[in-house]
Structure formats: C-alpha cells, structure tokens
Simulated scan of single mutants.
Amino acid sequence: MQFVRVNGIVLHYAVRGVADRPTLVFANSLGTDFRIWDAVAERLEGEYRLVFYDKRGHGLSEATKPPYALSDHVNDLAGLLDHLRVENAVIVGLSVGGMIAQALAALRPDLVRALILSDTAHKIGTDDLWNGRIKAVTEKGVASIADGIMERWFTPGYRKPENPDFVGYLAMLTRTMPDGYAGTCAALRDAELTESTRALKVPTLCLVGDQDGATPPELVRELAALIAGARFEIIKGAGHLPCIEQPEKTVELIRSFLRQANII
C-alpha cells in the first residue's frame, strides 16, 4: 500500500502498469474506493501506466470533517499528480470522479491530455437530494440509504444477494466513512461546472450505462454536447458502474478512444 500527505490530508494510491507508457489516472465514484477499477486495470496494465487513488474520506484515505467542496477533491488529485510528477495524463472519472476530472482540466490543464467521463455530468442532482442524503447518513449511517443506492448502481440482473460480487460492493458502500460520504455529498450539491466544462478543449469520451439510475444517458449526452468534439457512447447492460458490470466493453471503448486521440 502507498500513502502520501498532500493538500493537508493523507491519500491512499497505487501505481500499476508500464512506467514509460502514457498515464491513465482513475477517479472513482461516491461511496466506493479504487477497487471498482480492478477489472479494467487487469485489461489495461500491460499497455499503459495506471494511477489509482481513494479520494478524501473514502477507502483508506483520510477523512476530514464535512462539508467538502469539489475544489478540495480537485486540489487533492492535483497534489497527488504533482507528487508523482505526472503531467499530460488521461483522467478517467466516474460520477463525482468525472466532475473532479472536469474541474481538474479547467484548473490545471498541464495535467490533462484527455478526459474519459463515465456516468457523470456538469451538474448532478438537486439541493434537496444531497441535503436528504447528508441528513440520513449523518443521523443513521450509510447503510440507511444503501438499498436505494444499489438500485441506481446496478442492473436488476446483477443486484441479487446470490451474486457474491454484488454483496461485496454493498459492503464497500456501507463501510464508507460517514464524514467522507456526507462531505462529498455537499461537494456534489454545490458543484456547477457548466461554463467551465463548456470551455474545455481536450479530447473527451463520455460513457454511460444504459440503465444508469443516477446519471441517465440523457444527462450524460448533455455533458458531451458541452465539449467540442466529445464522443458519446452508451454501454448496454450496465447501471451507474459500467467498469464493474461491463468491464470488457468499457475497456474496448477506452482503447478505441485512445487510438482515435493518438494516445498509444
């Protein structure tokens, strides 16, 4: 395990793959840690240098007291990449990780060569949605909202107790630190990236599961429309986390996009 103190907190991270190849940096979703990318990593680590990290308040990274701002997460990632001396990377962001990726590209264009934005948007949810989650998690814990989250994350065929992987990801969610979850809900509530994302001029791929209950295809299509030349793809048979339910198709689209952008 690897840890570093950046931006005032300790982050857990990992570096895999081929050292002298282009770098892909993975930013994961609310209520998860970087293990959600395992099946993707297995298929790409022979071709690229891969950087994974647990954002503030998630996985093995330190949790500060809520609320958080999206800029906290963005500065955390920028600090990690500066520590690793990573520049000109492809940032692969899922859900809030995709918002972190968009904001990083606007703040630190030197760090970003291209974007792969999965199941995310320029604005996600409403104040009422996020305030309700913050209240529930603060008063009753993350487990109190788990059933509804799982319905957004996974398709009905995957979301069965006899599926051991589903049970494992449920455990990942419910073991997320309440401060980290509630703090990141506040960051999502307050983040509005429409204009800064509209100004981006980097190669971009936008992906979404066809059964995503959190950021549905229509919303991700709106995101793609903001970025000149962005490519938009729908992944069949996936909910909010295509990297888990459809890793082969996810990797196929990533590879195709990287070839198209001449990142090989």
Rank of each mutant, 00 (worst) to 15 (best):
residue 173 L to E: 07
residue 51 V to E: 01
residue 131 N to Y: 03
residue 52 F to P: 01
residue 80 L to H: 06
residue 37 W to D: 05
residue 111 L to H: 06
residue 196 S to Q: 15
residue 41 A to K: 11
residue 181 Y to L: 08
residue 233 E to L: 08
residue 4 V to L: 00
residue 256 S to V: 13
residue 208 V to W: 09
residue 184 T to N: 10
residue 146 A to I: 09
residue 237 G to Y: 01
residue 175 R to P: 01
residue 61 S to L: 03
residue 31 G to K: 03
residue 220 V to Q: 12
residue 196 S to G: 02
residue 111 L to S: 02
residue 90 V to L: 14
residue 12 H to Q: 04
residue 105 A to L: 04
residue 89 A to P: 13
residue 74 V to E: 00
residue 202 V to H: 10
residue 7 N to D: 09
residue 201 K to S: 15
residue 120 T to E: 03
residue 264 I to T: 15
residue 19 A to F: 12
residue 20 D to W: 04
residue 19 A to Y: 07
residue 155 T to E: 05
residue 1 M to N: 11
residue 63 A to V: 08
residue 93 G to Y: 09
residue 78 A to V: 15
residue 46 G to R: 08
residue 73 H to F: 09
residue 153 W to S: 02
residue 144 S to E: 06
residue 148 G to S: 08
residue 120 T to A: 05
residue 93 G to M: 10
residue 189 R to C: 04
residue 88 N to W: 10
residue 17 G to N: 02
residue 22 P to K: 06
residue 152 R to Y: 11
residue 183 G to P: 02
residue 21 R to I: 02
residue 254 I to S: 03
residue 58 H to E: 00
residue 55 K to I: 12
residue 169 Y to R: 15
residue 35 R to D: 06
residue 67 P to A: 10
residue 249 K to H: 12
residue 82 D to N: 13
residue 260 Q to C: 02
residue 72 D to R: 05
residue 97 G to W: 06
residue 112 V to I: 06
residue 228 A to W: 13
residue 263 I to F: 06
residue 23 T to P: 12
residue 33 D to P: 01
residue 238 A to E: 07
residue 58 H to L: 05
residue 195 E to W: 14
residue 193 L to C: 08
residue 209 G to R: 09
residue 121 A to P: 00
residue 235 I to E: 01
residue 115 L to G: 12
residue 68 Y to F: 11
residue 192 E to L: 13
residue 82 D to L: 07
residue 246 Q to N: 01
residue 61 S to H: 01
residue 247 P to Y: 04
residue 175 R to A: 00
residue 222 E to F: 02
residue 96 V to N: 00
residue 28 N to V: 12
residue 132 G to F: 10
residue 81 L to I: 08
residue 86 V to L: 05
residue 119 D to Y: 05
residue 107 L to H: 13
residue 192 E to A: 13
residue 196 S to A: 15
residue 187 A to K: 05
residue 71 S to F: 00
residue 261 A to N: 11
residue 179 D to R: 03
residue 91 I to R: 01
residue 22 P to V: 10
residue 261 A to H: 08
residue 256 S to N: 15
residue 55 K to E: 07
residue 218 E to P: 04
residue 222 E to C: 03
residue 248 E to R: 08
residue 59 G to C: 03
residue 111 L to N: 03
residue 59 G to P: 00
residue 135 K to P: 01
residue 239 G to P: 11
residue 208 V to S: 12
residue 183 G to D: 02
residue 215 T to G: 09
residue 4 V to I: 12
